[in-house]
Design a protein around this nucleic acid. Structure first.
Lengths: 107, 107
DNA sequence: TATTATTATCGTAATATTGCGATATATAAT
DNA sequence: ATTATATATCGCAATATTACGATAATAATA
């Protein structure tokens, strides 16, 4: 036991869950918000800003990136992470619909 | 190690993360949607509907309930779970704002 | 009160996540 | 080429989550 049975759920439900999983750690929420506030993001700043070890920040960034919420390009010595507007829009809509639908149908 | 450092993050970021955590498993997403579709929800139906053991469904329901997204009242022999509209509204707004802010500030 | 049906809790095993130090890799500047 | 800085990966330990069978608790009904 102990392994999630993702295969028994619909594509839609799995996708909502995947996005929520990335947002389910406060460090990742803080990282996303911080990136959105910067002109260009320098990761080393994140280590100071968030207060976790560099290796841990890198791991969190990777999970966000795997989902496609951010993309990184090198700018000189530093990596510049940006929100991927396309993916962000898509997930914003899916979440919005989910919240709205459940609310709408409620008893 | 292995313990989340929730104390170093803001109340707001922790709250978004808590809600996302509940939505981070497809079973809980499916449960919420199913409950919203029913007049009154009977948990035993969920076992058939979702396809997980009764103990597991009960655990998932408990996590949703702990966050305040649903509330249960007995109707005769059965428990009727309903979406808590107040909590739902609040979290819908917080999520909406988060998505919108990040999008808005993005480079 | 005994029975039946529904839901919750307990105990346990498997797996996943979080975090960090150490180390590797990559880029810029010297 | 060497050095310095930035980021990624590895390996490990601690903790959390997922799932289920067994069992307990709860409530309606006979």
């Amino acid at each position: 036991m102990g392994v999630s049975k993702t295969h028994i759920f619909s594509e839609k439900h799995n996708q909502i869950a995947s996005v929520a999983k990335v947002l389910s750690h406060p460090a990742r929420v803080a990282i996303l918000e911080y990136i959105s506030r910067q002109e260009g993001c320098i990761c080393n700043d994140l280590v100071d800003e968030i207060g976790l070890a560099q290796a841990t920040i890198s791991q969190h960034l990777n999970e966000i990136k795997k989902l496609g919420l951010i993309k990184g390009t090198f700018e000189g010595k530093n990596l510049c992470y940006c929100i991927d507007q396309n993916t962000w829009d898509t997930f914003q809509n899916h979440f919005g619909e989910f919240f709205q639908n459940v609310k709408f149908n409620c008893c």
